[in-house]
Amino acid sequence: MPRTVMPGDTITREARRAGDNVLLDGDTLVSTAVGIVNVSDDTVSVIPLSGKYMPRADDLVVGMVISHTSQAWELDINAPYVGFLLATDVFGRDFASHADELTSKLALGDLVAARVANFDRTRDPLITIDDRDLGKIDSGELVKMAPGKVSSLIGRQGSMIQAIETATDAAVTIGQNGWAAVSCESADGLLRAKRAIGVIDQWAYSPGLMDRVKSALGHGGG
């Protein structure tokens, strides 16, 4: 059974290291979030069940263009900070702000699969689409879940997402920020894949998760 905690709850007084969402107060490890206790090696952390995404370098994220300047796009990445995608990242080194129109490549509302290039809280996170499988998402639907539940959507060695994709023929691009783009040739497959993701968002840390997902994948219709 996963152990649930709330802000202020004592997790343990054993000598362990404080990981994410855990505070060391004297000799006590205290949770700072509503979440699930996770112990690995000597580190105690709490997986939060709600809240925004905190950017980390190298994470894959799904973002939406919300504005642009002459030099960069600003993306909503479900984080406290907007992600910056530099024009040079898209147009190449010889980008010229007077000649190249940013909206010709990415317009307001466009969704992109991107990677966090760097982030240190003093400046907004810089993101890049300069890699294969990154860039504008042309089809499908955006589905949102709590970032803390993304690992459940992926599953051990990708087992959960593989099960969903195999059962529905959908392709799912999962951002660590809790946003996923789901596309599928058939409307029924899309519906079932979305329903399965919804089940994971609701039941991420429940013991019978796989069974619930299977039943959501089972049949289409309503």
């Binding site: 205290v30 979030a33 509503v34 925004k52």
Partner: peptide, 11 residues
């Protein structure tokens, strides 16, 4: 605030 996942030292 806790529901929003804002980190809190305590309730």
């Amino acid at each position: 605030l806790a529901d929003a996942g804002i980190p809190m030292r305590d309730m």
